Amino acid sequence: MSQPQRSRCVLITGATGAIGGALARAYAEPSTHLVLHGRQLATLEALAAICREQGAQVTLSTITLTDDHALQNWLAELCAQQVPDIVIANAGKNTHPQGPEILEPWDEVQALLDINLKTPIAMVQHMVPAMQARGSGQLVLISSLAGWHGLPTTPSYSASKAGIKAYGEGLRGLLAPHGIGVTVVMPGYVTSPMCEAMPGPKPWEWPPERAANVIKRGITANRARISFPFPLNFGTWWLAVLPAGVSQWLIKRLGFNHSEGTPHD
């Protein structure tokens, strides 16, 4: 007699954002337990209703991810019930200088580094022992094409995304012998309020559903890196390998050296 199929558990932080919500809908199907985290409870509950209609079991959380004690307790409670098979650390924010030659406010830089860089690393620290004990798991860290070369319009955001890119790349080799895959996602511009608030041009902007489908396929294939769209990825990759002076000249010519407006997450 065949055993009933174990439900797959997928944890997504930042589920109330554009990419996070699209990923939740992409993974919502029978035999899937979605653990969705977000700051906006009403939006999160509306998303959960859609995912349940698609057949998924859904658990919600609104804990403060940057509170390490709360984060550790939440993840320990989840692992005691069912160790997630896929963990997508998607929560993030952005800030940018309020004008030319003006640095980003320090309190906003600290908040950005806490959620974009420290929180995903903390999640890895808390999740890996349980995944190691089981012998399997998939960690997904969200970088950005801005991680290839820092942009004057968003220097702190670029730094956080370059940092999580390097961390994920190093982590993949470290955890592979334990059956744990690590995927770094480097999106370009994806339609969202955060994208809209970012200064500078936004070439080859994708809808979140298209981004989520590409990310899901890459996770299934345990790809080391998922970067898109191709034209922008190819261009920003060259910024990383060309001499810095040439790259910075190109960035200026393309209009990524001016910042207007106010910081926004």
Rank of each mutant, 00 (worst) to 15 (best):
residue 1 M to H: 14
residue 6 R to H: 13
residue 6 R to I: 12
residue 6 R to F: 06
residue 9 C to P: 02
residue 12 I to T: 03
residue 19 I to K: 07
residue 21 G to P: 03
residue 26 A to P: 05
residue 30 P to C: 08
residue 32 T to K: 03
residue 38 G to N: 09
residue 38 G to R: 03
residue 41 L to D: 09
residue 42 A to Q: 08
residue 42 A to E: 07
residue 43 T to F: 06
residue 46 A to Y: 07
residue 57 Q to I: 13
residue 58 V to K: 14
residue 59 T to I: 07
residue 59 T to M: 10
residue 61 S to C: 01
residue 68 D to C: 12
residue 70 A to M: 08
residue 74 W to G: 01
residue 80 A to T: 08
residue 86 I to V: 14
residue 88 I to G: 06
residue 93 K to W: 13
residue 94 N to Y: 12
residue 98 Q to V: 11
residue 102 I to F: 14
residue 114 D to W: 10
residue 118 K to Y: 11
residue 118 K to T: 14
residue 119 T to M: 15
residue 120 P to W: 06
residue 121 I to Q: 10
residue 122 A to H: 10
residue 127 M to V: 05
residue 135 G to K: 06
residue 135 G to N: 10
residue 136 S to H: 15
residue 136 S to I: 00
residue 143 S to C: 01
residue 144 S to I: 07
residue 145 L to W: 12
residue 146 A to S: 15
residue 149 H to D: 08
residue 152 P to G: 03
residue 155 P to L: 05
residue 157 Y to M: 08
residue 160 S to I: 06
residue 161 K to S: 02
residue 170 G to A: 00
residue 172 R to K: 10
residue 178 H to M: 14
residue 179 G to V: 04
residue 182 V to K: 00
residue 184 V to T: 01
residue 188 G to Q: 01
residue 191 T to R: 12
residue 196 E to P: 03
residue 197 A to G: 02
residue 198 M to D: 11
residue 198 M to N: 13
residue 202 K to N: 02
residue 216 K to F: 02
residue 220 T to D: 03
residue 221 A to R: 12
residue 222 N to Q: 03
residue 222 N to V: 03
residue 224 A to K: 01
residue 234 F to S: 13
residue 236 T to P: 04
residue 236 T to C: 11
residue 239 L to M: 10
residue 243 P to W: 05
residue 245 G to W: 08
residue 246 V to P: 03
residue 247 S to M: 00
residue 250 L to V: 09
residue 253 R to M: 05
residue 253 R to E: 07
residue 254 L to K: 11
